[in-house]
């Protein structure tokens, strides 16, 4: 019978020394960088090294393991790094950071969201809307309604409407109605407002 039982060597664990891992993070072999990145996440000073590594890392697998590790450990240091990456010129870094932030506990971001929603960069405000989606409905509704009231960038307005359509509560209805007048000349935004109002009312009706 060709079936055998053997004692086989374990898979090599990554080095336990931060300096060795730092060297491995600069290796030309993606698998070595991947393993080093994975190990560094739980080490003191590891997040800073990974943040620096992300700036030059081109391999999607290595990037992903860094993002998922930061999301898993959910530390304030990790959240700060990710928030900074929302301003990156690299779209895949921005979306990786956004996904990782969305996977973190909502209360970790709650204190930072109002500030992001006031950011001077409309792209940051737009991404911050996505983060609001993970918050409790009442809090998200308040933030999105406030933003919609003062926002002039159409894409950001559309993002607030999208979030409100999904998780918005009735307190958003007056703002949406005022916005309908404001955006009457934009068929897309008018349509998005109509959808959001309908969904909120449907949710209200089904809850009665």
């Amino acid at each position: 019978m060709p079936l055998v039982r053997k004692s086989t060597a374990a898979v090599d664990a990554p080095p336990a020394d931060v300096e060795e891992l730092k060297t491995a993070l600069a290796s030309s072999r993606p698998d070595e960088r991947w393993q080093a990145a994975r190990a560094l996440i739980d080490m003191p000073g590891g997040i800073a090294l990974l943040g620096a590594g992300l700036a030059t890392e081109a391999d999607i697998r290595v990037r992903e393991v860094i993002f998922s590790g930061i999301a898993r450990t959910a530390t304030p240091e990790g959240a700060a790094l990710l928030l900074q990456l929302l301003r990156s010129e690299d779209a895949s870094l921005r979306s990786g950071a956004l996904d990782a932030l969305a996977a973190m506990p909502a209360d970790m971001l709650a204190g930072r969201l109002p500030e992001l929603l006031y950011d001077e960069d409309p792209d940051v405000r737009l991404l911050a809307c996505e983060l609001a989606r993970g918050m409790p409905s009442e809090d998200a509704t308040q933030l999105m309604a406030d933003l919609l009231e003062r926002e002039s960038e159409p894409n950001v307005c559309a993002a607030t409407m999208d979030v409100l359509a999904e998780i918005g509560g009735p307190q958003a209805l007056p703002v949406l109605q005022r916005s309908a007048e404001r955006f009457a000349s934009s068929p897309f935004l008018a349509f998005a407002i109509e959808i959001a109002v309908k969904r909120i009312k449907t949710t209200l009706d089904s809850g009665r």
């Binding site: 019978m1 060709p2 079936l3 055998v4 039982r5 053997k6 086989t8």
Partner: peptide, 15 residues
């Protein structure tokens, strides 16, 4: 594998 993989006898298969 014993029934359906003709090359089984040429290898040591550890399951």
């Amino acid at each position: 594998l014993l029934e359906n993989w003709p090359q089984a006898d040429a290898y040591e298969i550890e399951i």
